[in-house]
Nucleic acid binder design. Structure first.
Length: 817
RNA sequence: GCGGGCAUGGCGGAAUUGGCAGACGCACUAGACUUAGGAUCUAGCGCCUCGUGCGUGGGGGUUCAAGUCCCUCUGCCCGCACCA
């Protein structure tokens, strides 16, 4: 039976004391030393805290604790992203109201988070589903609306037939609903959008400055998808109509043999000839009915129909047939393209299928293979006066030429679409606008906020917003004319709630405004943000956008909300698969915490994995960590035992060696933990403990005072990783409460300089031996010592030494022949 | 299809960024203590044909020196996916 020196009782003892002594209270007076450490807040799901929560919050807390000991005034709040579909779906299944289940879950999770022993300052808690919070979410929406950054339009939107709501582009994964996996369909609805595209350029440009994982920056860059090209105008033959196409390859303009409109393009009805109308209508219906999956399928054959109309080539005056096809997206560029089958794979495929002409206008410039479709840059052919020009030049020159006639302009397009924020669901923040027959859309006056979410609502989903069925909610008076009016029945996407919560934390009790500008400019940006990589394209992009928008409206002074970002990895089940109930491989933190205590659990999470990688759970690992703490416990007991006995005061060889390890550990832990390399930090601490054991075992007459000093440093270094345990050990040593008021040890460079170092000796790059040299020896001296070594002599004997390479402190390489 | 990342002992994972591969831990082996050991302590532990041998997914290259840089192939993971 393992003797358990440390147990959940110890956890509770210190949690209580920390709370009583307000050890982790953020002191606003020290704002000049503030460090805003933020973990992504959690969704109050029914279950208890899972390993993922622990893996996110535990190590982050350790990092924050180290920072506290380093003298920072750490601000580490916690809260709940409490609106959202799961609570509502749960309500539909069980009849328990989302508000009731959510608040209950929050209570449970709060208790568990406290049991984790993190430094969270609960005075700054934020819960997004409470009116005190969503009042300001609505306020944010209204500011955007007044600035023209929120608008309504009818658009084909992603519709999940199972959730009965629309989804943002980011919430559609492989044509399926991110949440429930149902195939997403299209629906035409009038919806609220936030104009994130206005900030596309800045969102893209500022990415470089962010201390974020490269991968995440790349994902955002791709998501924004900047594309430089031109818009070129085509006239409709025989009609007083024209349209513009977007192209990045204006150099291929002479190769255009037809043009294509997206089926949803409003021009289609105006130009379709009577003879073709029947086919066009059929095709439009067909395109609409397709699910996202069908539409996205790359193996799918191209489809489309001729409209009967023709466009006029802007340079040659040639007549070009106008087709409609669903390979052209209504939502990108202008919703129409010029087709150049010779130099675009999609157009080539389409032209081949429908027997449309294919005309080459680019040849390869270096004589390499240029069979059609040839999509590389090259040299122009059959392009009037542009013939012979390089693609790179021609794509500019042709646009410049057309520009003189007002028929083209340079244009930058983005893949990023505006953010659709209306949701036809109940459990969210009501959209604070009123629809008046006379006055149209009227924003709710700020003094009337919040627009409260009514409690008694029938929320069974049927495609209509549940709020629509609440008479008392819907009917109101127009703030403008005083006449009868209706509220907006939709609620805001929960990503709106989470896109500004980090601004509310430092001023969460403010009832006058969402936050005080002067104060928030001192507290932000967030210095370290830690959370899952799954938010790379959504939350993290939205939050950046909202920050920039509020900055331009004068509420903030900084450009980016999260200076530095870390993603934790994923802890897998013991079988190496993602944890899931159906696989039966779920590791429940509670089972371990009740046996080993919170520190052992979080310590294992830090020691057993590379933090940003994660990996499969292993039960043996947690036992190893428990053993490690027992080893420290015994060391503490040992010190108490020998403390009063006779020792020595000198610092001799053994003390020097231990002192080296001590300072090496301080340095390594400081540097590694800074980078969230907790596994190596703890490895170094284990080495220090091993060194202390070795000293205790090997040295007969000890310098006990010195040994105790080293142990004290070891406990300080250990404190962030095992807060309850070290607090207990600190007390056992008779030191003053609290270890977290101790300052972080500093390493002494001079202790890291050894008198002699052992270096490797290579012959022709192969390791053949080792020699000891004084650490301050010159290269010549090292060469001499090396060549005198008996073993090395054997290798060198009778051979010609061509060269000797000395790398100080590392190795010597002798090149012989 | 395009873009990015990863591949190191039986296992989790380290390697001052081109300089002694395998830190630390698990598992395993041996010994000590012991009534007992699934506790603790000490030691060993990449592989083999045991050599001046081989070795960081396979093959090639640059270099005095390659896990690290370059080319190529294979496998896994992630992002985007008709964005003109």
């Amino acid at each position: 039976m393992i003797v358990m020196p440390y147990s959940p009782d110890i956890d509770r003892k210190w949690q209580k004391k920390w709370e009583e002594t307000k050890l982790y209270k953020f002191n606003p007076e020290n704002v000049d030393k503030k460090l805003y450490v933020l973990e992504m807040f959690s969704y109050p799901s029914g279950a208890k805290l899972h390993v993922g929560h622990w893996y996110n919050y535990g190590p982050s807390d350790s990092w924050a604790r180290m920072k506290k000991m380093q003298g920072y005034e750490v601000f580490q709040p916690m809260g709940f992203d409490a609106f959202g579909l799961p609570a509502e779906n749960y309500a539909i299944k069980t009849g328990i109201h989302p508000q009731d289940s959510t608040m209950k879950n929050i209570e449970t999770m709060e208790r568990q988070l406290r049991e984790m022993g993190a430094m969270f300052d609960w005075d700054y808690e934020v819960i997004t589903c409470l009116p005190e919070y969503y009042k300001w979410t609505q306020w944010v929406f209204l500011q955007l609306y007044k600035a023209g950054l929120a608008y309504r339009k009818e658009a084909p939107v992603n519709w999940c037939p199972s959730c009965n709501t629309v989804l943002a582009n980011e919430q559609v994964q492989d044509g399926r609903c991110e949440r429930c996996g149902t195939e997403v369909t299209k629906k035409n609805l009038t919806q609220w959008f936030l104009k994130i595209t206005d900030y596309a350029e800045e969102l893209l440009n500022n990415i470089d400055e962010l201390d974020w994982p490269e991968k995440t920056k790349k994902i955002q860059t791709n998501w924004i998808g900047r594309s430089e090209g031109a818009e070129i105008e085509f006239k409709v033959y025989g009609k007083d109509l024209s349209f513009r196409v977007f192209t990045t390859r204006a150099d291929t303009l002479y190769g255009v043999t037809y043009v294509v409109l997206a089926p949803e393009n409003e021009l289609v009805d105006k130009i379709t000839t009577d003879g073709q109308r029947k086919y066009v209508e059929e095709y439009k219906e067909f395109a609409k009915k397709q699910s996202e999956i069908e539409r996205l399928s790359t193996t799918k054959e191209k489809t489309g129909v001729f409209t009967g109309a023709y466009a006029v080539h802007p340079l040659t005056g040639e007549r070009l047939p106008i087709w409609i096809a669903d390979y052209v997206l209504a939502t990108y560029g202008t919703g129409c393209v010029m087709a150049v089958p010779a130099h675009d794979e999609r157009d080539y495929e389409f032209a081949s299928k429908f027997n449309l002409p294919i005309k080459r206008v680019v040849k390869s410039s270096n004589g390499e293979d240029d069979v059609l479709p040839y999509t590389e840059y090259g040299v122009l052919v059959d392009s009037a006066e542009f013939t012979g020009m390089k693609s790179e030049d021609a794509r500019i020159k042709i646009v410049e030429r057309l520009k003189e006639e007002g028929k083209a302009e340079i244009k930058v397009n983005y893949r990023l679409r505006d953010w659709l924020v209306s949701r036809q669901r109940y459990w969210g923040a009501p959209i604070p606008v009123i629809h008046c027959e006379k006055c149209g859309i009227v924003p709710v006056p700020e003094e009337d906020l919040p627009v409260r979410l009514p409690y008694n609502v029938e929320f069974a989903p049927d495609g209509e917003s549940p709020l629509k069925k609440s008479e008392e909610f819907m009917h109101t008076t127009c703030p403008n004319c005083g006449g009868p009016a209706l509220r907006d029945p939709d609620t805001l996407d929960t990503f709106v709630c989470s896109s500004w919560y980090y601004l509310r934390y430092p001023d969460n009790k403010n009832s006058e405004k969402p936050f005080d500008t002067e104060w928030i400019n001192k507290m932000l940006p967030v210095d370290k943000y830690i959370g899952g990589a799954e938010h790379a394209a959504m939350h993290l992009l939205y939050a950046r956008f909202i920050t920039k928008a509020l900055r331009d409206l004068g509420y903030l002074k900084f450009d980016e909300p999260f200076k530095s970002l870390i993603h934790q990895g994923t802890i897998l089940g013991p079988d190496g698969n993602k944890m899931s109930k159906s696989k039966g491989n779920v590791v429940s933190p509670d089972d371990y915490i009740s046996v080993y205590g919170s520190d052992v659990f979080r310590l294992y999470l830090m020691f057993g994995f590379a933090y940003t990688e994660g990996g499969p759970w292993n039960d043996d690992g947690i036992k190893a960590v428990s053993r490690f703490l027992s080893r420290i416990e015994r060391l503490i007991e040992r010190i108490s035992e020998i403390r009063t006995s006779q020792g020595k005061d000198e610092i001799d060889r053994d003390e020097k060696e231990l002192n080296f390890t001590r300072h090496y550990t301080i340095k390594s832990v400081t540097e590694d933990a800074e980078k969230f390399q907790f596994n190596t930090s703890i490895s170094r601490l284990m080495e220090l403990v091993n060194a202390l054991y070795k000293y205790d075992n090997d040295v007969k007459v000890k310098n006990i005072k010195f040994m105790e000093d080293v142990v004290a440093d070891m406990l300080r270094l250990m404190a962030p990783f095992a807060p309850h345990f070290t607090e207990e050990m600190w007390e056992k040593m008779g030191y003053e409460y609290s270890i977290f008021n101790q300052s972080w040890p500093k390493w002494d460079e001079s202790a890291l300089v050894k008198d002699v170092v052992e270096i490797g000796v290579q012959i022709n790059g192969k390791l053949r031996g080792r020699v000891e040299v004084p650490s301050n020896a010159e290269d010549k001296e090292i060469e001499r010592i090396t060549l005198e070594d008996e073993k090395i002599k054997e290798y060198v004997e009778g051979k010609e030494i061509k060269k000797i390479i000395v790398i100080r402190g590392r190795l010597v390489n002798i090149v012989v022949k």
